[in-house]
């Protein structure tokens, strides 16, 4: 009796150990990132050949070319459409990746009492700044939001997000939205090629990482009629750098040291 019980325990223990060890063995077997060697089950993972490359993507918004809200509409609509952004009646639950607001709200720390007429009246485009030193990435307890090593995009892994919303508190630009409920019923026209989100996760602009990775420019840039310029911040010959060299630009809340990568020509 005694010995058979011990025997059972040993087997049960070994079984538990085996179950625990399986993922480890799997991880060992799969070798280094993106390689899996061994017969018919071998595979390789690699970037798409057409993928656009940069050290740090950046955007320049030429606000001189903006006259009224309708100039921004195509960009916002393009983004909303391809990313399955829902429309909520309730303002509290809004999901926004790219939207417009007044100068006072976009640049609250650089506010002049007497602004020139143009700046006072034109709408400003706002989106995630894809900061070089992003506080949201620092705050995230699961690395669900992270900075892509290849090109500096501040990315969201919706599969991993636990919905603690620490990133929303950490973002000094209000660029993040939370899915307070299932967004699907609120999406007007679904783009079947891009996933929707589920309730309980945070989302934001991803600089169209899914398009950049297959050689396309971000949707808003494509629809911008020259208002938006997108390029590599660290390539001295890039279109973005050319614009930064020849124009005076401002960024949102520069004093916070987050190093935003969205520049505004005012």
């Amino acid at each position: 009796m005694e010995s058979s019980r011990r025997h059972f325990l040993t087997i049960a223990g070994l079984a538990a150990l085996g179950l625990g060890a399986k993922p480890v063995l799997n991880a060992l077997a799969s070798g280094s990132a993106g390689e899996f060697t061994g017969g018919v089950d071998a595979f390789k993972l690699k970037p798409n050949d057409k993928a656009l490359k940069a050290k740090q993507w950046a955007m320049v918004i030429d606000t001189r070319k903006i006259k009224q809200a309708s100039d921004l509409e195509p960009m916002i609509a393009a983004c909303n459409k391809i990313h399955n952004i829902p429309t909520f009646e309730d303002k509290r639950h809004e999901i926004k990746w790219i939207w417009e607001d007044e100068y006072h709200n976009v640049f609250p720390t650089a506010e002049n009492k007497f602004l020139n007429d143009r700046v006072e009246h034109i709408p400003f485009l706002v989106l995630c700044n894809h900061c070089e030193n992003p506080p949201c990435v620092r705050a995230c307890p699961t690395k669900a939001t992270f900075k892509r090593e290849v090109d500096g995009i501040v990315m969201m892994d919706f599969h991993r997000c636990i919905g603690c919303r620490f990133c929303m508190a950490a973002c000094p630009y209000g660029s993040r939205s939370f899915n307070f409920t299932d967004p699907r019923p609120f999406i007007k026209e679904v783009n079947k090629e891009f996933p929707t989100r589920m309730k309980g996760v945070v989302e934001k602009c991803d600089f169209c990482a899914e398009r950049i990775d297959v050689g396309q420019l971000p949707a808003c840039v494509e629809a911008s009629n020259g208002i938006l310029t997108f390029g590599d911040l660290y390539d001295p010959k890039s279109n973005v750098r050319e614009l930064l060299k020849s124009n005076f630009t401002i960024r949102r809340k520069q004093s916070l040291g987050t190093e935003p990568c969205v520049y505004y020509i005012v």
Partner: peptide, 20 residues
């Protein structure tokens, strides 16, 4: 938490930069 079932991601992907 928005996704309480994923709570253990905090242990699965420990992130020392996060105060949480």
């Amino acid at each position: 938490l928005g996704q309480p079932m994923r709570m253990f991601n905090v242990l699965l992907y420990p992130t020392p930069t996060s105060v949480l």
